[in-house]
Amino acid sequence: MPNKILEKEYLAENVVSMWIEARQIAKKRQPGQFLILRPGERSERIPLTIADVRAKEGAVRLIVQVVGKTTRDLAALEAGEYVRDVAGPLGHPTPIKHYGTVACVGGGIGVAPLLPIARAMKEAGNYVVSIIGARTKGLLILEEDMRAISDELLITTDDGSYVRHGLVTDVLRERLTGKPGIDFAVAIGPVPMMKAVANLTREAGIATIASLNTIMIDGTGMCGGCRVTVGGRVKYTCVDGPEFDAHEVDFDELQRRLNMYRDHELHQLEACKIGLAVR
């Protein structure tokens, strides 16, 4: 049964927020979970984090960055129109508990999946230090939502167009020595960012989880396309994740696999040059 779009607004250029009717998902969903959707009859299946819920209305919020065909088709739908297929909630919920002080580090669109986790951490009694960043001011999303649930909100932009000039990891590095000391960290954003956060917190001995954004198809553990290496073992992001111990994730492999279909045409050309004789 298709799901109705209840509300839609742009948060930044190419970043759209949508409330979608999905009663049972809204009832079941816990922070950290995602869903898989197909905007139309011919579309790919893509994973998106459930950024928020209104349980009474039976609605879930998605925050989507337009990066390719499927996200473009989704963003083109208007309130009152329908999303063809929505399946979820998928993945393990975030292990929410009282850690003490939790650093929530988000980059770019990663702030969207970070928001429900940061909120739940706050509700569990943690002191929440949020560090969010974007390439430039116009791309920074959810600043007010994050401020509302954070004890400290630190902001960076790569180009210095807003607040602090630099990367989220620059701020995190400084904050690691501040007070209160950080007990636990959550990192969600581009792969290089998550890798850099993991490197910092590993040195500092702070347990850290990262939410991985692999390519997925079914989201039910059936295809193995979302596999990642964590601590030397192969895991399926959709059923074993999406969050893993950031200190154990092979981020370089994750980045190469994310490039699979971007690289694809180039690779096609290359493939023709491979020799023809077997053994």
Partner: peptide
Amino acid sequence: TPKFLKIPGENLNGVYSANE
């Protein structure tokens, strides 16, 4: 849920499970 061979290089791009 597909089994893999558990050999080096299995997560290279271009290696699929039959299911995928």
